[in-house]
Design a protein around this nucleic acid. Structure first.
Lengths: 179, 179
DNA sequence: CTGTTCATGTAAGAAGTTACATGATTTG
DNA sequence: CAAATCATGTAACTTCTTACATGAACAG
């Protein structure tokens, strides 16, 4: 396959904003990109090593004593690759995997259907609450350190989850299935 | 890990509505579940064999001459497992992977940002058009043959993609980034 | 002094995609 | 008769998750 995956660019994007360790990247991703692109340690650490060996990133600092810590910095080559990716027109993968929608699709009795609607509501209410927390937190982050698109993307997330919530609300209130 | 995955239940759900071949399942999935749970031949054929060997499904008919075709039917054991799954409370996985959101997250210049907004709009406009086509098609399918939740799920999809479209529209019209 | 957070990494496996190989039947 | 569609299946690969192993530093 090609040299860099979307997950590589996610890491590169984080390094572009500021030098980071694998641990940093994971924590940032867990309250930002995870809502539309999740990553795990099992990807991050090997990928950082790989990005370094390919010249897209380099080790900025490495702790020799005490607690282990390797901080990576993006290289000019990495920055160029990131820019190219950002501007490239491609397939622009969009994928949803939703177990509750899958269940709803196959459900025939009204009672289970209503129960699933309830569960969908609860799920997205929880996500909305989390996103509102992120929003609050974001306002406290110094302007310069903020990843540029975070505000836009956050608003998109709020809209998306609100829309699903509203739909599930309607579904729950609907009279017992006709037609 | 456990014996049946969500993808197994998707197949079982299809067989519950009506006996099908692997090819059938793929074509149905491609204009229904694919919007929230995509599957490929590489999963379907081995999984049908597996479901049969575990007693959740059985071969209803098999062409011995001419064009190959194996039609599967759900067994009582399969039906029971499906029902249990539909009613089980679990983690209810919800996952989004969106390359354009990922790009937007890292974009700093207004021009690229606007371009990505445009691409998001185009993408979801296309999905909406497809979903409206599915909606039309669904009305022509005989009532009894319809998978029960398809209408509900379809409306959910329309809402979701409309919400993203609207958000992208706002994003495109916004004055060049302040704050 | 104990639990939490910081910190790195690997190994095994699950899940999914893509490409390939093969061939029959139908439609224009 | 050629192209599209019907039809099954496998192999190689990518991607991602989970669990494990290890240990330092800090907060109460």
């Amino acid at each position: 396959m090609s040299e860099l995956s979307n997950t590589s660019y996610l890491i590169l994007g984080m390094l572009d904003a500021h030098p980071h360790s694998g641990y940093d990247i994971k924590s940032i991703a867990d309250h930002s990109t995870r809502f539309f692109w999740a990553i795990s340690y099992g990807q991050i650490y090997p990928e950082l090593t790989r990005l370094e060996s390919l010249g897209y990133a380099e080790v900025e600092s490495e702790s020799t004593a005490g607690r282990a810590r390797r901080v990576f910095r993006i290289t000019p080559k990495g920055r160029a690759a990131l820019k190219r990716w950002l501007e490239a027109e491609g397939e622009d993968a969009f994928e949803v995997r939703d177990e509750l929608l899958l269940k709803l699709f196959f459900v025939s009795d009204a009672k289970t259907r209503r129960l699933i609607a309830k569960r969908i509501k609860a799920r997205h209410q929880a996500v909305l609450a989390t996103l509102r927390g992120v929003e609050k937190h974001l306002k406290e982050v110094p302007h310069a350190r903020r990843v540029k698109g975070s505000k836009d993307v956050l608003r998109g997330g709020l809209r998306l989850h609100q829309a699903i919530y509203d739909w599930a609300q309607d579904l729950e209130n609907e009279p017992t299935h006709t037609s």
